[in-house]
Write a protein that binds this DNA or RNA. Structure first.
Length: 221
DNA sequence: CCAGACGTTGTT
DNA sequence: GTCTGG
DNA sequence: CCAGACGTTGTT
DNA sequence: GTCTGG
């Protein structure tokens, strides 16, 4: 699955990488330990114009009575996303890119858990496939999102059996294309990223506590 | 029809 | 054990 | 994801 | 809102 990640590239680099021009109230600080429940930077397309936006990680469906449900909805399985009532509708109309430089997974080693940092070999930022929604109860409005997961590729297999869906730049276009509503076409691109272009290495358990921040999180053990 | 859930992960 | 908060 | 709390009453 | 279970 994907329950923690990082985004430390400069805002300008991110905006350029995703061809996203407009920005609204953006998180500028580099983040090395992004956790569910926090505000994150995403790319949304409206009328074919890409813009950066800030959403809370942990989807609260618009029909939810209790927003606490968001703490459980941090991921959506690609395999069933088109049949689950919570995600089905969003897949057609509320897709977003979630900008990242890397993510963390914990490998079970007996009773221990060893965290790993996973990133692209070229060290460039990339995007998770995500869904978002807007929730309100009359007095407040919360915009939230979730990260889609798929089975592990050859690199991830040794660490964990699931991984987030990372889109190629070509597939990012399809994902943000508002004219694309065919589930089949979208399912085709929710697949494990090519392991040949990824790298993973063990890091300190300093990352475990979500209050910990700082570049040293990326240091190899 | 209405009522009630709606999620993923990992572990058992 | 289960839920909430970071 | 992991860490950390998890309760009520009455008093300050 | 939409789906499942009774």
């Amino acid at each position: 699955m994907c329950g923690r990640y990082n985004l430390f590239s400069e805002l300008q680099v991110i905006a350029e990488r995703f061809q996203a021009i407009e920005q609204e109230g953006l998180m500028v600080e580099p983040r090395y330990n992004i956790a569910p429940g926090q505000n994150i930077t995403v790319v949304i397309s409206e009328k074919n114009k890409r813009k950066l936006a800030v959403l809370r990680w942990g989807l609260i469906p618009n029909w939810a009575k209790d927003p606490k449900i968001g703490y459980k909805m941090i991921n959506a399985r690609a395999e069933t996303i088109d049949i689950k009532p919570s995600f089905k509708g969003l897949l057609k109309r509320k897709r977003c890119l979630i900008a990242a430089d890397g993510f963390y997974e914990w490998k079970k080693e007996g009773s221990q858990k060893q965290p790993y940092h996973i990133h692209l070999s070229n060290k460039e930022p990339f995007a998770f496939a995500g869904l978002y929604d807007e929730w309100g109860n009359g007095s407040e409005v919360i915009r939230t999102c979730t990260i889609i997961t798929t089975e592990a590729n050859e690199l991830m297999e040794g660490i964990h059996d699931r991984m987030p869906v990372i889109l190629t730049q070509e597939n990012e276009k399809i994902w943000l294309d508002e004219d694309v509503t065919e589930t089949a076409e979208l399912k085709k691109i929710m697949v494990p990223y090519d392991a040949a272009f990824m790298n993973a290495y063990p890091i300190s358990s300093f990352v475990n506590n979500a209050r910990n921040e700082g570049q040293e999180i990326l240091n190899s053990l």
